[in-house]
């Protein structure tokens, strides 16, 4: 458990370090994710060293979004005032992203890799 936490938080900490050193606007968590995948690929870390912790975190990821979602209550007035543009823009654009991404990928994906 401690080793699992160390690996996950170690990658995150290295991500923080990269952000601090370079000042790039990519979040430390994304850098940490890429780093973890790279370390697994290079066999520096074994899969079973992180599997338990990562499964736990991934399967409960939705729950971690509850507090930022509750922040909606701060903007109820703004959202009420601009409800139509916010709702239409969000829904239409999200549907477009879904269709365009999925359709493009389905059309041009490499055939033999079904």
């Amino acid at each position: 458990m401690i080793r699992q936490c160390f690996i996950i938080f170690g990658c995150l900490a290295l991500g923080e370090l990269v952000v601090w050193l370079t000042g790039i606007t990519i979040p430390s968590s994304i850098i940490g994710m890429l780093l973890l995948a790279a370390l697994l690929q290079m066999k520096v870390i074994k899969l079973e060293w992180v599997k338990g912790m990562s499964d736990f975190l991934i399967s409960n990821m939705g729950f971690f979004f509850v507090p930022p979602g509750v922040a909606l209550m701060l903007y109820l007035d703004l959202i009420k005032a601009e409800f139509l543009p916010i709702a239409v823009a969000t829904v239409v654009s999200t549907v477009l992203v879904l269709i365009v991404t999925g359709w493009t990928h389905q059309k041009i994906k490499v055939k033999d890799d079904k």
Binding site: I8, M33, L36, L47, S54, L57, F64, V66
Partner: peptide, 28 residues
């Protein structure tokens, strides 16, 4: 919301490590 956020920050905190954990399926 500020009062709730104090409690919520303990939960929200796990969002970053959870995103790091996505490195595992990515590797696989």
């Amino acid at each position: 919301y500020e009062t709730y956020q104090h409690a919520g920050s303990y939960i929200e905190f796990w969002l970053k490590p959870a995103i790091v954990a996505l490195g595992v399926p990515l590797y696989q």
